[in-house]
Amino acid sequence: MATNKLQVAIYWGAACGGCDVAVLDTNEFILDLAAAADIRFWPIAVDGKYSDVEAMADGELDLALFNGAVRNSENEHVAKLLRKKSKVLVALGSCAHMGGIPGLANLATKEEILLTAYLANPSVEPGNQTIPQARTAIDGMTLEIPYFFKRVFRLADVVDVDYFLPGCPPAPVQIRNVLLAVVKGELPPRGSVVGASDRALCDDCPRTKSEKKLKAFHRPYEIVQDPTRCLLEQGILCMGPATRSGCGVRCPNSNQGCRGCYGPLPGVTDQGAKFLSALASIIDSKDPKEIDEILAGLPDFIGLAYRFGLPASTLQRSYR
């Protein structure tokens, strides 16, 4: 199939589909893309089978956009397949980049998750005892379904990834820029994060910042916000200082703290730990008791600091 059109595949692993929507959200650009590229594989939009991909020659695809985390053997299988078949594999969105929201499942064990999903759940039919198994013998045949991994992995844990395009979802304009860069062949060194800034969100955030000292933490609804002042200074948790910019300051502009979906800054190995270090340092107290009281205002710190990046963190999962 000799054509000079760009050969593209888009796939979702353990994901919500938001990233696919974000690709569509590039608006009229998607039409240009459609014109400029052959979309060879995109389960959410285009009909196709894995076997079609398997049939491709290695490196036949110019670009594969993989969004979603790697939760089961199917995700892994396709990830490896696309890696083999594409010249450039991009981890699209927070889940592929760092594990994303599905990554929070790493706080629970596989057994707990299966138990909650299939047995101890009010919506489950009473008396149900079935938990899906990888292999089930039915009528002398063996039914095989994808295997549920012990934990969630990010894409880079299972295959080599060429580029990471962060965001939950990535800002459409960033997707567009990356696609354009691929077309133009203006890609940075492999392994880079693309479509995001090397500075933290605060760089783009229009709110005024001053020296920080925290006496208490607040949920956004608990206080009357000053819309021009740094949220963190007002006691509202904002991951902005520990998160790459590139989204267009979506959350703080909506008077919500940044949730950290664009991931850690270059050189930072663990976004949550770094944020912890920064946040705790500016607590305005020298009394251990008072510090504990202030910290009690943070009900779910791990859920906040690692909302998008638990599988990418240093410890990766809970070891309970």
């Binding site: 020296e211 963190l232 500016i282």
Partner: peptide, 13 residues
């Protein structure tokens, strides 16, 4: 300075 975002967390410390 290429990586500082001016968040000013360090200022007080």
């Amino acid at each position: 300075e290429d990586r500082c975002s001016g968040c000013r967390i360090c200022n007080e410390l």
